[in-house]
């Protein structure tokens, strides 16, 4: 099987660091995700938006990585939000109860506007 490129570029919009998560989030994405968070944190953004728009495979190890980022952000006084989740990934966030602790928006624009999460 061909390996998918594991990159998570970080963009900055309206004071928010937007992390475009890679297509495959499993054990192989650990370094990519940690580096992306470190980049976002280094920029000083108080809010980090995890954009799941490109994600096509998420394993439970990948969820553990997201929890790790959530915990670090909490420690650093940052807010983590999420956008671009398919119905399937929303379900996963429900099962793991991550949805209780993370605002989820339909898309990036809605997330940047803030307000009521969906």
């Amino acid at each position: 099987m061909a390996m998918t490129e594991s990159t998570a570029p970080v963009r900055y919009r309206d004071g928010t660091a937007v992390v475009d998560l890679p297509a495959q989030i499993d054990a192989s994405a650990e370094r990519t995700l940690n580096e992306a968070y470190a980049t976002a944190a280094g920029h000083g953004s108080k809010t980090v938006l995890l954009n799941f728009g490109r994600v096509e495979f998420l394993s439970s190890t990948g969820i553990a990585l997201v929890v790790g980022i959530l915990a670090r952000a909490r420690k650093d006084g940052r807010t983590i939000t999420a956008s671009g989740l398919s119905d399937h990934y929303r379900e996963i966030f429900e099962i793991t109860r991550l949805a209780d602790f993370m605002k989820i928006y339909a898309d990036e624009s809605a997330a940047l506007k803030g307000g009521e999460a969906t």
């Binding site: 297509a23 495979f57 399937h88 099962i95």
Partner: peptide, 16 residues
């Protein structure tokens, strides 16, 4: 060009 393949995880997760 080999198209990157991504696995499908839908059947791997429990339904809430």
């Amino acid at each position: 060009v080999e198209t990157p393949k991504v696995r499908d995880d839908a059947a791997n997760w429990a339904v809430p």
